[in-house]
Amino acid sequence: MHDDRDIIKAIRRQPEQGFRQLLQRYQQPVYWYARRMVVSHADAQDVMQETFIRVFRSFGQYDERQPFNAWLYRIATNEALRLLGKRKGVAELSLDDTSDDLFDLKADEYVDYGNVEAVQLQKAILALPAKQQIAFNLRYYDELSYEAIAQITDSTEANVKANYHYAKEKIVNYLKTND
């Protein structure tokens, strides 16, 4: 698996070859990150596609002083919020949004409802406000640092820690009451 520095170098030297390396490294993490937010397979596919096309086209704007994964996840986050915002009829969803109808485990062909524990956990996550969902998902599933999550969400490390803490508390309460 290529590391971020190799990918950046490759994209600068031979964009197409570098882009393939980028896809091999990040296609699945970005898809699953998007999927946890937008739920449906088709929407996650759209978010992933838009994210990588945007990354490829705006690669010249990437500032190497910031971690590459934070830049990439920030684009993916914006694309997911844009898609969810479209549903609500706004340009982009706010990180504070908690609309129940947006974050819901809808009927989807590609959801295994037989995995009860996993379904319950996703329902608990989807019941959180966007900023807590994002902090929780990036820390719990993607195992990113608080610093990287702060860069992705344009926040502070302290804020991210607080959001992660609240998220965990709410998830555990949800699981207890919906057991």
Partner: peptide, 23 residues
């Protein structure tokens, strides 16, 4: 950490090729 979500078979390979064609 297993999620209840699944993807169609061969989805990621197909997407990789589609995205490569896209650029």
């Amino acid at each position: 950490k297993t999620m209840p979500y699944t993807v169609p078979e061969g989805f990621f390979d197909e997407m990789e090729e589609r995205l490569m064609q896209e650029v």
